[in-house]
């Protein structure tokens, strides 16, 4: 069993993507940064999408009620085990009664704690991922709070590992996102394109697992004719009339009527979960073919380490 001592700003349990139900309005959920969660699970010998804790910004702390192996990846933060510094990106053995604290993120936004056992989560439509607005999956469909005790089963003993240095994603507060033009891209004027691709924008406080709002000194205007509700996905960048674009994340709604201007390419999508309020975000235009090449190159780089393609 794992006890939550302090859940910080928001800690949820995430697992695989709840796929195939978007046409019923059910988003995929799953980790906001799938790459980091995969790397955490790799260190405890687990499948990429074994249920794990997703913490945000402020970190969180936990007490383990039995021995197991754990790992933390994602946003750069200090870890301490019973007050003694512990490494990120490494398998760390913990004993019954041990306390692990993940400090506030220095860079990036979300960290992942994986364990060498199975967290007992409630499955909903084939996934244990928490979807907060719907109140399902994870632990009682909600964010964790101090005092919650999550059951653990099938604890395995695993080999101690470290993520190879070249495979550790580095996060900073200057985020460059590669993106392809989407349905209403053509309605962005030159000024809007200068803001998106050269000047950049800042991530505002309106930031959650559903999306991140961006704001600049000037508005991004998209003069697209009004459109009927159309499907949107994680990575979609929409531009509402007030000129503050927002990027959709794992828990985003499934349809929307705002102009869909850009789509962040698959190989950069993990970064979306690491954009913290105040970070500067700039886009770089790619063609779909470029995007496909980059995804293959990314997978090539990780394929010796990760067990299945999850990026």
């Amino acid at each position: 069993m794992i006890e939550v001592l302090n859940a910080g700003l928001q800690t949820t349990i995430q697992a695989g993507i709840r796929g195939g139900h978007r046409h019923f309005g059910v988003p995929g959920s799953g980790p906001a940064d799938l790459l980091s969660m995969s790397l955490a699970n790799r260190l405890v010998g687990a499948d990429a999408i074994q249920p794990a804790f997703e913490m945000s910004l402020t970190g969180a702390s936990f007490r383990f009620h039995s021995a197991m192996m754990v790992s933390v990846t994602g946003a750069e933060a200090s870890l301490s085990l019973n007050g003694v510094e512990a490494p990120m990106h490494a398998t760390v053995p913990v004993a019954a009664g041990d306390e692990l604290e993940v400090a506030p993120a220095r860079h990036g936004c979300r960290s992942y704690l994986a364990i060498s056992g199975r967290l007992n989560v409630s499955e909903f439509l084939g996934s244990g991922s928490t979807y907060l607005p719907g109140g399902f999956g994870g632990y009682e469909g909600r964010a964790l709070k101090a005092g919650d005790r999550i059951g653990v089963s099938d604890v395995r003993s695993v080999e101690k590992l470290e993520t190879p240095h070249e495979l550790r994603p580095l996060f900073n507060d200057n985020v460059l996102l590669q993106a392809c033009p989407s349905s209403e891209f053509e309605f962005l004027n030159e000024d809007a394109q200068t803001i998106l691709f050269e000047e950049g924008l800042k991530a505002t406080q309106r930031s959650s697992r559903m999306g991140v709002e961006l704001s600049g000194d000037r508005v991004v205007s998209c003069n697209a004719p009004e459109k009927q509700s159309s499907p949107v996905f994680p990575g979609s960048v929409q531009c509402p009339p007030e000129g503050k674009p927002f990027i959709l994340l794992a828990d985003a709604q499934t349809t929307g009527g705002y102009p869909h201007i850009l789509q962040v390419i698959r190989s950069d999508r993990f970064q979306l979960g690491q954009i913290k309020p105040g970070a500067r975000v700039r886009f770089m235009l790619r063609t779909p073919d470029d995007a496909a090449d980059r995804l293959r190159a990314r997978w090539e780089a990780y394929s010796d380490w990760l067990l299945s393609p999850v990026i």
Binding site: G19, G20, R22, H23, K227, Q228, S229, S230, P231, F233, T254, T255, R266, A291, A292, L295
Partner: peptide
């Protein structure tokens, strides 16, 4: 995923 919009649809494939 194959998602209906009111006047369109979007299909997602394994990239």
């Amino acid at each position: 995923e194959v998602v209906d919009g009111i006047e369109d649809c979007v299909a997602q494939f394994e990239p």
